[in-house]
Simulated scan of single mutants.
Amino acid sequence: MAIHKIQINDFVSDDYELIAVHSSLDDYKLAYMLNKELGVQLSKNLAYVEIAIPEGKSAFSNYIFDDEKNDVVWTLIENKTTIINSNKQTTSLFEQVDITVFLLPEFKKADYLIKIENIDYGFDSESIVDKIQEIKNVTTAYTIDITNLKSKNNLIF
């Protein structure tokens, strides 16, 4: 009998674009501005993206838009969140330690990520980046090369 192994790499596809956004805006304000500027309809996803780390479980808020007409899924997700270390026994309120967790640790300076799934080869990500950079309080935006990304598995949600 043959043994078939299924690896996580079998499910990872590179048919998406990833855009990093540096901004001081709150997530709901950025989602609103992206909706206005890009003509999308991002709405709050009640299911948080969770990543388990030794210190505890982290939860990242996100906004999603499923463009059924073009069969494209847009996701705006925060890149960093703070958790309280729940494993350490504390005797005082002042001894609690907040831990910052990054969805993509390679891009710690990026505040948000935009994942655009099911794109075809004619997708123009540079025009999207240009429109994002026109938003007030967005410092910069750029595409991320996903081929050499070490924490690629964090983007499976």
Rank of each mutant, 00 (worst) to 15 (best):
S61N: 09
N154T: 07
K80T: 07
V12K: 15
S127D: 11
K57G: 00
L30Q: 08
D14N: 15
S58L: 06
Y142W: 05
S61E: 13
L34N: 07
V12P: 05
D71G: 03
N137A: 09
M33R: 14
V97I: 10
D27A: 10
K136V: 13
V21T: 03
N9V: 12
I119Q: 07
Q133H: 02
K44M: 06
E37Q: 15
K109Y: 08
N154S: 04
L149D: 05
E55I: 02
A141E: 03
S86E: 12
N154V: 04
K136Y: 12
K5V: 10
E95T: 09
S43V: 05
I114E: 01
L113C: 04
N35E: 13
A2D: 12
T75N: 08
H22G: 03
S86N: 11
Y63K: 05
S24L: 14
T147R: 15
T100S: 06
I84T: 12
A2N: 09
V40G: 01
G39V: 07
T147K: 15
A2K: 14
Y63E: 06
S61F: 03
V73T: 14
L25D: 06
I114S: 01
V97L: 09
L149S: 06
L34A: 10
E134S: 14
M1Q: 11
M1K: 12
I135A: 10
L30I: 07
H4W: 07
A52P: 00
Y32A: 11
S58I: 00
D145W: 05
N154F: 02
S43T: 12
S58Y: 05
D26N: 12
I77H: 02
S24Q: 07
I135K: 12
L76W: 08
I146D: 00
Y48D: 13
L104W: 00
L46C: 01
Y142M: 00
D130F: 09
F60G: 02
D111L: 09
K5T: 12
E95Q: 14
S127G: 00
G56C: 05
H4N: 13
E55M: 01
I146L: 07
N153K: 14
I8R: 11
A2Q: 12
S125D: 04
Q41M: 11
D130W: 05
V40L: 10
K131A: 12
K44Y: 09
N79Q: 04
T90V: 15
I83P: 00
P54R: 11
D71Y: 11
A20M: 03
V72F: 08
F11L: 15
